[in-house]
Simulated assay, not measured.
Amino acid sequence: MSDSENTAAIVPDVKDWTWVLERACPECGLETPAVVREDVAGMIRANAASWAALLGADGAALRRRPAPGVWSALEYACHVRDVFRLFHVRLGLMLTQDGPLFANWDQDETAVAKRYGEQSPAVVAEELVAAAEVLAAAFDGVAGEEQWRRTGSRSDGARFTVESFSRYLVHDPVHHLFDVTGVRHA
């Protein structure tokens, strides 16, 4: 793959992925509606371990995009790390504020600004695992129905409870691991 193919602009994903809260994902295989909220923390940790193992591979291969405009494995890993960080912030808002409105986040702009494709796979692996642990511990700390029912909203009108937010979140890193490996969720 040429350098120009590896630096081609990413086509922004403008899909509304909240449908995964209602039915299984036909691509990655995760049955998000069946995810038990108390299992989310463990799923986050397991997913992070899979990413860390993947990031131990050859750096050049991790940086190579499978097609023009499609993120490399390293870029996806950086995105997952940042999703874990962002969702930790959003979970904190939901648990401490009444019905917070989440700030917009442009994942594609972030990928360019942070130069995802140029980051060190070893550092990304450490940061991803650390961010996953912080988020998983925060979900471990959610206690009682009152906390699981607290809400937060995106600017597009999507409204989540902590419980639906946990299931929505877990689909993202699972789906991106499928994007990179082609292995469906068991």
Rank of each mutant, 00 (worst) to 15 (best):
A46M: 09
D16A: 13
L177R: 11
P100E: 05
A137K: 13
Y168V: 02
R167I: 05
H175T: 01
V170W: 07
A125D: 02
V180W: 03
W17Q: 05
L101T: 14
R45K: 12
M1C: 08
V11N: 11
A57D: 12
A143C: 06
E27Y: 10
Y168A: 12
V83H: 00
D3A: 12
F84Q: 14
L135E: 10
L101V: 15
V129L: 06
D106E: 07
A24I: 04
D58A: 00
V14K: 12
A24W: 04
H185P: 01
V129Q: 08
T32R: 06
R64D: 03
V134E: 14
L93F: 11
H176Y: 09
E145Y: 04
K15P: 00
D172Q: 14
A52T: 06
T96H: 12
A60F: 00
C28K: 00
R184M: 10
A53C: 07
V180E: 04
V183S: 12
N6M: 07
V170I: 15
G69D: 11
D140E: 13
R23I: 04
E27K: 11
V162Q: 06
V40G: 03
A186T: 13
L95R: 11
A52P: 00
L30Q: 06
V11T: 15
V142S: 09
Q147H: 09
Q147T: 01
A132V: 07
G117Y: 02
D172N: 13
A48N: 09
Q97D: 09
E75W: 05
V40Y: 05
